[in-house]
């Protein structure tokens, strides 16, 4: 089978554009990207189905027929893409209703851990009492080094788990 070059290029361009959009933060753009990729893949199925022929009805003509199976698949895929896109749009609308934008937010807990890591800060479950004990060699390292830094109130938003309005650095 010789693939159809213009179609292959079209697939490449659509998927590339789609991937660029999917990497955005706004859900609406992600959805447009998803639709582009989805359509690109649908075109890929056209490439896969081989050269075009007559209508795939047995006994209609002696010419070679088109392969009907990829078309059946691509129809299913289009329907699924349609449904998922509709759901995604509803979700984006809901996110806009709730927060005024539809940007995908960072996870709150992960964000907390990342900030702690940046400040060389221990986790809540870290047992300070144990760490304060001298180690086997009777470490005489200055105590100040092990001291846990107080989180400056400004770096951690007050309402971290109530709403996610905080803008991230």
């Amino acid at each position: 089978m010789t693939p159809n070059l213009p179609l292959v290029i079209l697939v490449g361009v659509m998927v590339a554009a789609g991937v660029t959009l999917v990497l955005e933060r706004s859900l609406t753009r992600i959805l447009i990207g998803f639709v582009l990729i989805g359509n690109g893949v649908s075109v890929l199925f056209l490439v896969v189905s081989g050269p075009a022929g007559t209508a795939p009805i047995v006994g209609l003509s002696d010419e070679p027929m088109s392969d009907p199976l990829p078309q059946a698949m691509v129809l299913t895929a289009i329907v699924i893409t349609l449904g998922v896109t509709a759901f995604g749009l509803a979700l984006a609308y809901r996110a806009w209703q709730l927060t005024g934008h539809d940007d995908v937010q960072d996870d709150v807990e992960d964000d907390l851990i990342r900030r702690r890591a940046e400040q060389d800060e221990t986790s809540v479950t870290f047992d300070e009492a144990d760490a304060a004990l001298p180690d086997e060699e009777g470490s005489d390292a200055p105590i100040e080094h092990r001291e846990v830094h107080e989180v400056p109130a400004t770096t951690v938003p007050e309402a971290l788990d109530a709403d996610h309005e905080d803008e991230l650095p």
């Binding site: 989805g38 893949v41 896969v48 998922v84």
Partner: peptide, 21 residues
């Protein structure tokens, strides 16, 4: 979750297309 799943579905479609080809 939804975005990741959508992308994985598209990758699956590409895989199916390649297998069929």
């Amino acid at each position: 979750y939804i975005v990741v799943s959508m992308i994985s579905s598209v990758v699956f479609l590409v895989a199916i297309a390649c297998v069929y080809a």
